[in-house]
Design a protein around this nucleic acid. Structure first.
Length: 417
RNA sequence: GUGGCUGUAGCUCAGUUGGUUAGAGCGUCGGUUUGUGGUACCGGAUGUCGGGGGUUCAAAUCCCCUCAGCCACCCCA
């Protein structure tokens, strides 16, 4: 049985899934608008260099996960793997670098990985970017937005906010050196994987999952001790602010970033479930991003959340949409029924469904099966006197409604709900 | 990219140590006479047992290959 397949790691959204998906976005949009973030939508296609220059050649995203191809005009294009770099590009190309830009966005992202729970090749993100401010208060503002968003979705309590500072470039350089020498002292005890990581990106050893690595890492030097005065002040201010705002957080000195453009604050909302994909929302500050793709020296802070990962922690929603069916007793009246539906001038949340086949019994049965709360039935006798039957499926009672009054009848019956 | 598990009707699954026409529940369709559903009863249809190859008198069942899905590593949202 060879059915047509969908592309690996992609999903069709239908039924309750797309309702949930749209709900999440709707809540996000409402919240962002109210905090004066404005929407931006950038293309899914970008030139490869937008990401290769900003994320870093050595990052996994660039080195092996990007959908990267040459189009018919011999241009190197990619399906965007993330939002931040693309938005930075948009800020530069639209010449709005001098503005204070508060953006929010949502849409699909693409990474060619092996799919598993909470990981897809086409996935969807919502995110915000606060660009042009180097003030820790902006960090706080986007974190508050994240807090409100997660509370609105009723998943905040399932998550822990972890936060760290990566300092600036100088701190990182110094710290890297110290960490490297520490790890080299313990080289023989490291896992093979971490030995490899030590060469490519020593910071990554910090979030290894190997038991032995974790032990070694416990007594490694802490990046927080390497922060220069400016970075230190920034981090302290941020922590202070979180305290003042009663945001629950956890300082996690092992929290690092795989992408080159991050510095200073880094934060993640994670679940403590054993699931492997436990990051739901992640963000931080970036000060080298703009320069890396040829813009002014701008700084920003932002985060992105995976819609699919949010969904994993949400309860199944019960859709309680009311349906009202219309059908005839005699198929010759079907066009009349359709005309009645077309002429309705109503403002109700219930959905109108026209049943167009089967004998009368079947029609009732169908109406019942789709969960209708009641039906309008047009019979020959009633049609002659310009009336239609309304049957309430809960009570089983019927009444006759004047066709001229059907709008009022419906509005009155279903409006207050 | 590496590893583990799974693949039988539309869906959820059963299928005993290889043995005749491959099963159940749900769903679907039809019926239980007239213009009335939800409940009940009766009946029908549907599968190249993921695909290909092999072993055997005989394969859903054993072996090999392949594809797909799930899960984990890597990495990340």
């Amino acid at each position: 049985m060879q059915k047509v397949k969908k592309v690996k790691g992609t999903r069709d959204l239908l039924g309750n899934q797309i309702i949930l998906h749209n709900n999440i976005i709707a809540k996000f949009v409402r919240l962002c608008n109210s905090l004066n973030f404005s929407q931006i939508s950038t293309p899914i296609l970008e030139y490869s260099e937008i990401f290769t220059k900003s994320l870093g050649q050595s990052s996994d995203i660039v080195s092996k996960e990007m959908y990267n191809f040459e189009d018919q005009g011999k241009e190197r294009l990619v399906l965007r793997p993330e939002g931040t770099a693309a938005i930075a590009r948009a800020v530069i190309t639209n010449s709005i670098e001098q503005n204070l830009n508060k953006f929010f966005y949502y849409g699909p992202m693409f990474r060619r990985e092996r799919p598993q729970s909470g990981r897809l090749r086409q996935f969807h993100q919502v995110g915000v970017e606060y660009i042009g401010s180097n003030n820790y208060l902006s960090d706080l503002e986007v974190i508050i937005l994240a807090e409100e968003f997660l509370k609105d979705l009723k998943i905040r309590k399932k998550l822990v906010l972890e936060i760290n500072s990566l300092g600036n470039e100088i701190t990182r350089k110094k710290y890297n050196k110290s960490l490297k020498s520490y790890l080299n002292e313990n080289f023989t005890q490291l896992s093979d994987l971490s030995k490899e990581r030590l060469k490519k990106n020593p910071l990554r050893v910090l979030d290894s999952k190997e038991e032995n690595d974790i032990k070694i890492v416990q007594s490694s030097p802490s990046i927080i001790d390497f922060l220069d005065d400016e970075s230190k002040r920034m981090f302290e201010n941020l922590i202070n602010g979180l305290e003042k705002l009663s945001v629950n957080y956890n300082i996690n000195r092992f929290l690092v970033r795989g992408l080159d453009y991050y510095n200073h604050s880094a934060f993640e909302y994670v679940t403590e479930e054993k699931k492997s994909q436990n990051t739901v929302l992640a963000g931080g500050r970036y000060n080298q991003l703009f320069a890396s793709i040829g813009g002014k020296d701008l700084s920003g802070v932002g985060w992105a959340a995976g819609i699919e990962r949010i969904e994993m922690h949400m309860n199944d929603l019960k859709t309680k949409d009311e349906k009202i069916c219309f059908f005839s007793t005699n198929n010759e009246l079907d066009l009349e029924v359709l005309k009645i539906i077309a002429d309705l001038k109503i403002n109700i949340s219930s959905k109108i469904h026209f049943i167009n086949s089967g004998n009368l019994k079947k029609k009732f049965s169908k109406a019942n099966k789709i969960g209708a709360i009641g039906s309008f039935i047009l019979g020959e006798d009633e049609w002659k006197i310009k009336k239609i039957i309304w049957k309430d499926f809960c009570t089983g009672l019927q009444e006759l409604v004047e066709l001229d009054n059907i709008d009022q009848f419906l509005n009155k019956k279903f409006c207050e709900k």
